[in-house]
Design a protein around this nucleic acid. Sequence first.
DNA 1: GTGAAAGCGCTAACAT
DNA 2: ATGTTAGCGCTTTCAC
Lengths: 340, 340
Amino acid sequence: MGKKMSIKEIAKLSGVSVSTVSRVINNNGRFSEDTRQRVLKTIKKYNYQTNTLAKGLRMKRSNTIGIIVPDLSNTFFSSLVEKMENQFFSKNYSTIICDTGRNFDKEEAYIRMLEAKLADGLIIISGKKTFDASILSSSMPVVCIDRKPNDKKTLFVSSNHYQGAVIATMELLKAGTQPVLFKVSGNSSSILDRIRGFQDTMEEKGRLLNNNSIINLNSEHPSGSDDRRLEIRNKLRMLIKADNLPLGIFSTSDTLAADIMIAARDLHLSIPGDLKIIGFDDAPIARYCYPQLTTIRQDISKIASQASQHLISAINDSEDDAIDSENTIIDVHLVKRSTV
Amino acid sequence: MGKKMSIKEIAKLSGVSVSTVSRVINNNGRFSEDTRQRVLKTIKKYNYQTNTLAKGLRMKRSNTIGIIVPDLSNTFFSSLVEKMENQFFSKNYSTIICDTGRNFDKEEAYIRMLEAKLADGLIIISGKKTFDASILSSSMPVVCIDRKPNDKKTLFVSSNHYQGAVIATMELLKAGTQPVLFKVSGNSSSILDRIRGFQDTMEEKGRLLNNNSIINLNSEHPSGSDDRRLEIRNKLRMLIKADNLPLGIFSTSDTLAADIMIAARDLHLSIPGDLKIIGFDDAPIARYCYPQLTTIRQDISKIASQASQHLISAINDSEDDAIDSENTIIDVHLVKRSTV
DNA sequence: GTGAAAGCGCTAACAT
DNA sequence: ATGTTAGCGCTTTCAC
């Protein structure tokens, strides 16, 4: 309602110059209390809003932060994004959330777009392998979550996936099983860390790793699909033959664990009697499994707050380039429920 | 790598004027193939990117669309957003996703921000009650999903919630139960429609509605929480006394249905023997329940494509204001699984 | 304490 | 086919 006002019209309407209006709006420079009142009144009256495009053009910054996320339908990512977005909002940044669908070209296109919009900083969440910082043409601060950057300048925030895997494996060992790791093919740096944690623990405890120690599921099958569950049943059958019960499974995600549990039920395996299982993430699904899933909890709030704080300080300190790229690794912990 | 180039520098570097460069970039107006090549070459060479802020300022449009969503951690919303974002991306719009956390002030702040960024259009998803279009100061096209606008200009896309409720209620009736509706307090227009569908069907089939026909759960308790489940157990106990088995429940969401099923298990109620239940949405959780949940499926892809198409045409036809605000109601259908 | 004016990078008349 | 120029709305020297 009412057309768009410009600073110029506000100036005329309040009988001052544009520069004064600008000073009042941004509360910088000097002006009398009287003018302030007058200007503010007309602004309110005509419902003036700053054109942020013009402001951004002039200031060469947009007060906008881009978040690149591989997949919003994954609850881990969506709640991470939700939390960060909240932080940025409270610090007066607006956030552009970009879902790449794990498509690398789209990721690159998004990064270009964010540069073109003069985004002040970027959060890049996982996806695949590592992040290649040379993709950036400008020198925009970026913090990576869960994906290791291949340079030393980009900040990095992550859960301690290695530690989580160690805890999970130890727990399974203590429960008297010969642990097996289940994963979906395709390796982010976080999954790689979990695998290393598993392997190292097994070796340290003198357990032999063989072909069946790590089960790799076809990533073409979506979570929850019949194909996925069928494949799991087959793997489970094979493991039952090869090993003695109870089976001990470390699943690299809770969703996967949920599928494993359903497959196990089809096979009439009791949990935790015949099969003990630990997931990773502490996703909502963990509490909807039966029995409720024991898992390694990632501290999403902490990841979110660390990442957003780091980014904001990187933006503000961008002049002294020598900001110590201090990486943050965040503790995870075991949530004992009923599957071990 | 390399500082930010402007169109002016590209012009100088390729020995032409800025307007020619602009023409080449936007492929509008005439220029010789020779100049085109030359300009394109320098653009590539110096990795030039258009400053979209300047462009937007000049054109009074930003090629940006805002999506206001109440809660990204809800899979229905997140996948809706994901799908629309994809559509917009393919049409060369960038999308700003704004999670309001169901906070009305934040919603308003976001709308202001999107106006200030000269967003070309808005998608507003549910939240509460109706959408008050007078909140918009400019005349930006907006399409509402699931939330009825209070004016006749704003477009509206929604599943046929009423129809879904009728189908679910009929199914429960056919299965020989006296259906009860479970909902969480707080009423979006979509939930209201579902309730009406339930009530109308009951009346039409000559079933009496009483105090226990609609169970209203405390919205303070989060989904999946012990509090929520405790409350459900209490309600269930009460219903078991009042009615004869099997109980028939129409749950207004799948997440809620999942909690009900867990509560039922605690009470040693067999499903679908003692308790028959139908959910709504066909969320991922429906396939992780045991037994798998019979539910009313919303066609998220269709909602997303309708909404984005409508918005885009509204943006393009914005001159002829008389665009017939044709609302779209999308069919839902029953997915039979194992809980009825 | 306030105003005039330059200029951010771009597009679109209007020239030629 | 190409160049010149005004101006989008804003901030920020520089004057006064």
